[in-house]
Design a protein around this nucleic acid. Structure first.
Length: 647
RNA sequence: GCCAGCAUAGCUCAGUGGCAGAGCAACGGUUUUGUAAACCGUCGGUCGUCGGUUCGAAUCCGACUGCUGGCUCCA
């Protein structure tokens, strides 16, 4: 997740700004120092905004010269001079007229007057509401329009480092010019900076793309399969299957029933669900088939299909016209979500209130056309297997069902050792009604209140975020933190009060009238892709026994123990344990290193002593030797650890 | 999709206009082994693709594809 994606929609009040932590204040000050240095090297630089972020700070700048990492040393050298000079940060209050005049003289975000205006600063001034105080901060020659706050003097910036250069749109709007965004970080002292750099390095070492390749979990074959469509290799597929097993057991116990649905559906499906007008851009372009009977691939599909095929308003669907004479082509879409399919399963039979809640579960494979620049290893993909389920229930059942879903989340968190999480409860925004959100103002408020009540009562850790809901109802995004503190959005939960009605879903109630059920969309394990990506980084590839692709490797010391070793392997495999024998020409040391590097969970060494005593020498990956134990005990312990999904 | 950077053997990387390289992996052999690498040898690349400049291109230029870091987006 980008570190600075919490940029608020609403402008921060001065009061909120002044609540900056000490570290943020230091980092923001460092951004000014960096801007000073850049202005010295390239006086025509035009600065936009330079706030602190989670990992440090950035400043957006427009500049003919393309700043590259090779330039960092020069910029940092200038910054050091500024820090050594120990300029005070002076705060000046000015009138709007004064600020506009200074900006027109190019004096803001600059070292001196310039022949061109400080155009982005002028733009920023426009955003400052009437009546709000306008302030400058001056450090040495550098004067900037800035609400502050800052540290007292440039010398208070203890240690800093420029980290990367990227690009960003002015004010985050893609219609605005793209600026160069220079990232850096700063700390009170050198020790803290070095600790942070070490942590960054550790995070890089844990990157799921790196470990995924090392362990042979998956590949992305961009040339033949396509970008964003991982192929699970045997060792990765093991993890996929273990997760599915966990989900199936958990959902079975919670009263879910499983269904299976195809990967394609007719256009009518997504037109009815309402997804098409909202989300056509995020779906793969349709396949066009000649109408029923022929089944032949139509002309349109033989021509190269481009994204523009779905741009604008797609042609009106007439395939279901009752004339029966016309042969309109039928458009099929790869499914981007499972819900409409499940809705049709709900509709497949008459439903009674006695059937509710009906919980339909499926590990459904969906396809989403994510923009090329957003694909990221397993984290952002185009083909995804969702731990999906839809719970159809009455309003009276909602609280209990929704709470049970949350409890399931907590149960999973415990299994995976996820200690830090937060549920982001996204509600609708008034302004988006009828556009971003279905136009049902009262239903929105009612549903949101129901969700809020359940969350409040269950003691779940949540925050409420306005104007981020799904189009059909409020949404709960589940953010979790891996053991090293990286943040992930693992799953999304939604309450849907709109789409069941679009599909005409009803159940016959006690009073013999038809009513529309509520639908809860939930996916506690998210998608295999993202969840396994998270787990790789969470465990640094050192999976618990039940998930480890290689659970046990038995190493006979010499050929004389080959049969004994084989016996152990066969016994374990008979119990469905992923055990293998390794007897190559390598020395024992070499075989142990190989097993450690492959992250084999249990390494069982058997020499003559062990064979004679019917024992094994146990070594656990990353934890070293565990001593010699009776064979039967070791086997029993392995089976128990797997069965209990012990951490 | 946008901005920038990158693309050399399965992996990690060296090679700045003049014969395509190393380590690991793989394969073959020797070695029969007691807790993180035994030894010898062999194989392996149209230097991402296409085009241009040049006597000559991995190297310089352009386009495309993909990846990386961000931005926008994320049902």
């Amino acid at each position: 997740m980008p570190a600075d994606n919490q940029e608020p929609k609403e402008r921060k009040s001065l009061d909120e700004r002044h609540r900056m932590s000490e570290l943020e204040r230091l980092r923001h000050s460092c951004a000014h120092v960096m801007a000073t240095a850049i202005a010295r090297l390239w006086p025509d630089a035009q600065f936009a905004a330079g706030p602190p972020v989670d990992t440090g700070f950035y400043y957006d700048v427009e500049l003919e010269h393309r700043i590259a990492p090779e330039d960092f040393a020069a910029i940092e050298a200038e910054m050091k001079k500024e820090i050594k000079a120990n300029h005070p940060f002076e705060r000046l209050t000015v009138t709007r007229a004064q600020a506009v005049a200074d900006a027109q003289r190019g004096r803001l975000g600059a070292l001196a007057d310039r022949p061109v205006s400080s155009k982005f600063k002028l733009g920023n001034l426009e955003d400052i509401p009437e009546g709000e105080e306008i302030t400058y901060y001056r450090s040495g020659d550098f004067v900037d329009l800035c609400a502050g706050p800052h540290v007292l003097r440039t010398g208070n910036i203890g240690a800093f480092k420029l980290t990367s250069v990227a690009s960003a749109y002015y004010k985050g709007d893609e219609r605005n010019p793209q600026l160069q965004r220079i990232y850096g970080t700063a700390f009170k002292n050198k020790t803290q900076l070095e600790e942070w750099l070490k942590l960054q390095e550790e995070a890089r070492q844990r990157d799921h793309r790196k470990i995924g390749a090392e362990m042979g979990l998956y590949v992305i074959d961009t040339e033949f399969t396509g970008p964003g469509m991982p192929l699970w290799l045997p060792k990765g597929a093991v993890i996929v299957e273990e997760l599915e097993k966990l989900a199936k057991e958990t959902e079975f116990a919670a009263g879910y029933v499983r269904v299976k649905t195809p990967h394609l559906a007719k256009e009518k499906m997504y037109r009815t669900s309402g997804h098409l007008p909202y989300y056509a851009e995020s779906m793969f372009p349709p396949m066009v088939l000649a109408e029923e009977g022929g089944g032949r691939v139509g002309e349109a599909a033989q021509a190269p299909v481009t994204r523009s095929a779905t741009e604008g308003e797609p042609p009106v669907e007439r395939a279901d016209s009752t004339s029966g004479l016309r042969t309109e082509p039928t458009r099929y879409y790869l499914k981007a979500m499972n819900c409409p399919h499940h809705h049709r399963i709900f509709a497949a039979e008459p439903r009674s209130y006695r059937d509710l809640p009906l919980r339909l579960a499926e590990y459904g494979c969906c396809y989403r056309y994510e923009q090329s620049g957003e694909l990221l290893g397993l984290m952002r993909v185009r083909s995804l297997n969702m731990n999906d389920a839809h719970i159809y229930c009455t309003e009276d059942q909602f609280a209990a069902e929704f709470n049970a879903v949350n409890q399931m989340y907590l149960q999973y968190f415990k299994i995976f050792g996820i200690e830090k999480y937060v549920m982001r409860f996204s509600t609708h925004g008034q302004a988006g009604l009828g556009k971003k959100y279905v136009d049902e103002p009262e239903l929105w408020l009612k549903t949101e209140a129901m969700v809020r009540r359940v969350l409040d009562q269950s003691g779940i850790n949540f925050v409420e975020v306005p104007d981020e809901a799904a189009f059909y109802g409020p949404k709960i995004d589940v953010q979790v933190w891996s053991v090293i503190g990286r943040e992930f959005t693992l799953a999304t939960n939604q309450v849907d009060f709109a789409v069941p009605a679009k599909f005409g879903l009803v159940y016959r109630d006690r009073d013999n009238t038809d009513k529309t059920p509520l639908c809860i969309h939930r996916a506690p394990l998210g998608t295999h892709e993202r969840f396994i990506g998270f787990l790789i980084e969470h465990y640094a590839g050192n999976f618990p026994l039940w998930l480890a692709p290689d659970q046990v490797r038995v190493l006979p010391v010499t050929e004389a123990q080959l049969d004994y070793a084989r016996g152990i392997v066969n016994e374990l495999r008979g119990e469905q344990v992923r055990a293998e024998l390794e007897f190559s020409s390598d020395k024992l040391m070499g075989r142990i290193q190989r097993a450690e590097q492959a992250r084999v969970h249990h390494i069982l060494v058997v020499g003559q002593r062990e064979q004679d005593a019917q024992s094994v020498a146990v070594r656990i990956h990353g934890r070293g030797q565990q001593g010699v134990q009776p064979r039967a005990e070791v086997v029993a312990d392995i089976l128990a650890a797997i069965r209990q999904r012990r951490a």
